[in-house]
């Protein structure tokens, strides 16, 4: 996968595979913005079963709170950030 540059708009895959998934449900299907690339890490989805697997790129992604929660009570400037594996991110545009 081509490296996503900071500022790239993304959408988190809205999938519900079985197993050990580190992409929280509340972020699936949501749109956000890449903040930075942290590097390649063991993929928890395979490591959780003691299996070998490819390392995966991990990005810090920022979501506006009002994009996650339609009734968000705080100001529109608030944000949630999470560290997500590259295979959960779809480039928008």
């Amino acid at each position: 996968m081509t490296r996503l540059a900071p500022g790239t708009p993304i959408r988190v895959r809205e999938d519900f595979p079985p197993g050990h998934i580190r992409t929280p449900v509340y972020l699936r299907g949501k749109t956000g913005e890449v903040i930075k690339f942290f590097g390649n890490f063991d993929n928890a989805e395979t490591a959780a079963y003691g299996l070998p697997g490819l390392k995966k790129g991990v990005y810090k992604v920022r979501f506006r709170a009002i994009d996650l929660w339609s009734d968000y009570a705080g100001p529109a400037i608030d944000a949630i950030e999470a560290d997500l594996y590259e295979h959960w991110l779809e480039r928008l545009t």
């Binding site: 050990h20 063991d42 490591a47 959780a48 079963y49 003691g50």
Partner: peptide
């Protein structure tokens, strides 16, 4: 037992 295995087993 690695941390990922621990988490998966808890879940």
């Amino acid at each position: 037992v690695n941390t990922h295995e621990n988490r998966a087993a808890v879940e």
